[in-house]
Design a protein around this nucleic acid. Structure first.
Lengths: 190, 190
DNA sequence: CAGATATTCTAGCGTCGCTAGATTTACTTA
DNA sequence: TAAGTAAATCTAGCGACGCTAGAATATCTG
């Protein structure tokens, strides 16, 4: 059965090839440029091969997004532990979120902007996504009332800052000042 | 020159016809369903007629968005004056923002989500958009330091709540609770 | 009514996501 | 090793997209 194993391995490699090609192309020219034809050209296979790995273009984007959830969760957890106990935990975690969005804009877009079938806030939510959200909750400090709602509002603010900045709707300058304001508002006990 | 006036009037009517058809179609089936072909069919003219009024599809969306800015500005100003002096100004204005987004989701999408060439935070920013932002600034109370940054963070939070809810990324339930938290955080002096 | 001008339409270009069916490649068996 | 089968891959094409050149029609002017 070693032949089948090799085939399986080669398929997995080609799967990776597709994902990295999609990511590189999106990073270079945006998700609009990621067409099935160009992707097929990049991996040097014909279009239908893509469909033997993914259900369609949306599925490829979703796969990139899923990896993004893992990276974001890791980053947030790292930021939280590095500043554990510190009064700046919240600031560190928020900064990590914003840094992630800044450093991987197209991945962020795949995760949180493009239409997706990935389930949020349900049983089918990917574990990495739950973990990322849990990191936000934790950063807000010890169990308060309605800490889930609180975390959702914080997340909304962070997400708003990211997308409004990415689409040029708020100026790039002043990001630090906005972060400070946000942290101030959310760390002070009412 | 009355003939030319009639022609001008008819052109203006057809312009309106296009915009209302686009809006209705978007409301019924989403912006993806708004194609130049379907739009042409709805107004009972051929496709190229659309291009004698608008530079392209994006231009039509932008026109819908521009009207949305006016409506939003009006709503926010009304909410502000109705509760003037009241300690609940902020809550009222935020609620008005969220209500607008809830009641006109596709218009909101055209304004703040879909890619657009409309300029934000620049000299070319439409007056209605500036007015809407000014209403947010005003709702935050008398001149504080960095009130523009503060308003931008508030706006980000509101926008985040809207888009994450609209895309199913945070649950529909609990909107009231989140609004309360947001207002609490932004109204308390640090 | 004839000619000029403005308006509208037909038809088509190149692109998209996606897929049926032909073809080639790889493996199995006699 | 050769023939036959199964798996993998490709060619070619469908219908829809935004957009436009140039033909056809309607409208106005002299």
């Amino acid at each position: 059965m070693s032949i089948d194993e090799r085939k399986e391995r080669q398929r997995a490699e080609r799967y990776e090839l597709i994902l990295t090609a999609a990511l590189k192309l999106a990073e270079a020219e945006g998700w609009d440029a990621v067409t099935t034809r160009r992707l097929a050209g990049l991996i040097e296979y014909s279009q239908p091969v893509l469909y033997s790995h993914f259900k369609g273009k949306a599925d490829i984007v979703a796969a990139v997004a899923t990896r993004g959830f893992e990276e974001l969760a890791t980053r947030l957890k790292t930021a939280a532990t590095r500043a554990a106990g510190d009064p700046d935990v919240l600031r560190n975690v928020c900064a990590a979120y914003l840094d992630f969005a800044r450093s991987r804009p197209v991945v962020y877009e795949a995760m949180f902007v493009l239409p997706t079938k990935i389930k949020f806030a349900s049983e089918a939510t990917p574990p990495s996504l739950r973990a990322a959200f849990a990191a936000l909750v934790a950063a807000l400090g010890p169990e308060r009332e309605q800490s889930d709602f609180l975390a959702e509002v914080l997340w909304s603010a962070l997400h708003g800052l990211v997308v409004l900045a990415q689409s040029g709707r708020i100026p790039a300058a002043g990001a630090e000042a906005r972060l400070s304001i946000l942290v101030l508002k959310f760390s002070s006990e009412p």
